[in-house]
Design a binder for these strands. Structure first.
Length: 566
DNA sequence: GCCGTTTTCGGCCCGACTGTTTTCAGTCG
């Protein structure tokens, strides 16, 4: 609602307020707590303490929480009764155009817009032309098919393909992916490529005609933008070498992070843009990101942290964490095999893990309650233990420094009990507990259910603690603050499941765990030999949650990790 | 409408591209 108020104000040509509302909307979206909870717990004043929210917006939020609506919003909407979210989704249409279309053609929604465009009415309006009408029609087609944001891990495959295509051009001196992809955000809207070149024209010409491209939004000397068949939008920007760092920082974002950097630059008497940091007309930094951060009086900030959640203040105070690195994992603590719903044998999975440089894996097949996966009962898991012992012996004889750990992804039952008896769980190296059923219990019941499992001394890790599937299934209702508190008390490990559509824990909970001193594991949840590659997405998520090596148990040597779990 | 190393008034990030215009407004990131 706040965002729409901003758009309505923008329509009317009001200065500055639109940005204030937009900022408040973004701030509330990214705030650690639901605004409703903030209000219920600590009232109006606490709402005002959310950055970007002042007296006036706080009152509107209060009204919204209390009555479910806002008079101010309704007034604005009455003046221009259009379906804003539907119309702004059309590429190239913003508040000003939407207002003109409403006033002159009474266009209220996508359907009206399509009708008017097809009838050739839009081209006759002043400020619009044939081309605008054509673009609107194209835009409508894309809105109809568009799937919104892309899951990071899945988009990466396409990003890497395009990256390798562009890198093969001799005109490309250097290329890097910027934007939310570089920040490793769990979902990305588009991919931004940054290129250094003295001769950009052939690059741009090649880029807009690549086989994956189905639409060209812009085709310029320094900037081009396209849509790929998959729906992913890709931008290419070419910059001179001396501006590379500034451009990389600029295009990496986040937007709010950049705005903050610019305001700091202004206070110091500088100007910051994508070409560099300037004092007057003199460029004082810009070749690398490091020199820009330094000139602004702060430590270098890793891309994963650039979300305006305190990283700038920490960088100014020299208090940024030393993040876990992409090569730091020594083992994988959730691996499925063909004993349940995995595709490959224990040995095949172990060999694949060795091939990517891991030193151990934990086998965690499902348990009997999850019948559709062929989950293990007591008898079969005892068999599996024997099999793993044999394989470890075999590896030892072959002088392979690799260990297969015995484990389970054991279902947590409705009452918080475990799907396998304690006398079995005791025999395993590490026990993971998971929720796979009854996602719709009340928050209280679900929280108690998991807490009870955490009280079981045989349980070591809670797998994918919130059960969400990005873009597909919301997390089940669970009080994560309470879960983190209990984890601290019971020395429970919480998992960061690295599978691209899970990333569960998500970044903000990871950060809460870091702050609370709760340890985490990063696991692939591999169901096939190719899945170990997803571990990097889990590491990315951990970095976004400010995690260091000390926070993640499977970067530690095997003995230290097992000792801690014991 | 928000905010404060320019602190309770007076600023607010900045540039590229497109289309329609003939110098610029709107949109986007």
């Amino acid at each position: 609602m706040l965002r729409e108020i901003g758009e309505y104000l923008e329509m009317q040509g009001v200065a500055f307020k639109p940005r204030a509302y937009e900022k408040a909307a973004e701030s509330i979206e990214s705030f650690q707590e639901e605004a409703t909870d903030v209000y219920r717990k600590n009232g109006l004043k606490a709402i005002e303490n959310i950055p970007g929210v002042g007296v006036s917006i706080a009152e509107k939020i209060e009204e919204l929480i209390k009555t479910g609506k806002s008079k101010y919003y309704q007034q604005l909407k009455k003046k221009t009764p259009v379906n804003l979210s539907e119309l702004t989704a059309v590429e190239g249409l913003g508040p000003r155009s939407i207002r003109a279309l409403y006033q002159k053609l009474k266009i209220r929604n996508l359907k009206d817009l399509e009708k008017a465009a097809k009838a050739g009415k839009i081209r006759k309006l002043s400020g619009f032309g044939e081309k605008s009408e054509e673009n609107i029609l194209k835009g409508i087609e894309f809105v109809k098919k568009s799937s919104g944001r892309f899951i990071f891990g899945f988009a990466m495959q396409e990003v890497r393909l395009m990256e390798s295509r562009l890198k093969s051009l001799q005109e490309v001196k250097r290329l890097e992916v910027a934007g939310s992809v570089r920040r490793r955000k769990e979902t990305v809207g588009d991919a931004d490529f940054l290129v250094i070149s003295d001769n950009p024209k052939p690059i741009m010409d090649y880029f807009v005609s690549a086989p994956e491209v189905i639409r060209v939004y812009a085709h310029g000397q320094t900037k081009s933008a396209v849509k790929l068949k998959s729906g992913l939008d890709v931008d290419v920007r070419v910059v001179p070498e001396e501006s590379y760092g500034a451009a990389l920082a600029y295009f990496t974002g986040s937007k709010d992070h950049n705005i903050k950097l610019r305001s700091i630059a202004i206070k110091k008497g500088y100007k910051l843009n994508e070409y560099g940091l300037f004092r007057g007309v003199k460029r004082i930094a810009g070749r690398t990101e490091e020199e820009i951060y330094k000139a602004l009086g702060m430590d270098y900030i890793e891309p994963e942290l650039r979300e305006m959640t305190g990283e700038i203040e920490a960088a100014e105070d020299g208090k940024l964490p030393k993040l876990i690195g992409y090569k730091d994992l020594k083992g994988d603590l959730q691996v499925q095999t063909n004993w349940s719903d995995g595709a490959h044998s224990i040995e095949e999975m172990a060999k694949a893990a060795m091939a990517v440089g891991l030193e151990y894996i934990l086998i965690t097949d499902h348990t009997k309650r999850l019948a559709m996966t062929g989950g293990l009962n007591e008898f079969r898991i005892l068999k599996q233990i024997e099999e793993i012992n044999k394989l470890n012996l075999k590896f030892q004889k072959q002088n392979l420094k690799f260990r297969i750990l015995k484990g389970t992804e054991c279902d947590i039952l409705k009452d918080g009990g475990m799907d396998l008896p304690d006398r079995i769980l005791e025999k395993l190296d590490i026990v993971g507990g998971s929720i796979h059923s009854l996602f719709n219990l009340s928050k209280k019941e679900q929280t108690e259910r998991v807490k009870k499992a955490m009280d079981n001394p045989n349980v070591d890790i809670i797998f994918h603690p919130t059960g969400r599937l990005i873009n597909r299934r919301a997390p089940y209702e669970i009080d994560m603050d309470e879960i983190i508190k209990t984890a601290k008390k019971t020395k429970m490990v919480l998992e960061i499941d690295a599978f691209p559509d899970r990333l569960d824990l998500k970044d903000e909970y990871i950060r809460k765990c870091v702050e609370a001193g709760v340890k985490m594991s990063i696991s692939s949840d591999a169901h096939s030999v190719s899945h170990f590659s997803v571990l990097e997405y889990g590491i990315a998520q951990a970095r976004r949650g400010w995690a260091t090596k000390n926070d993640i148990i499977n970067v530690w040597p095997l003995d230290k990790m097992l000792e801690m779990l014991k």
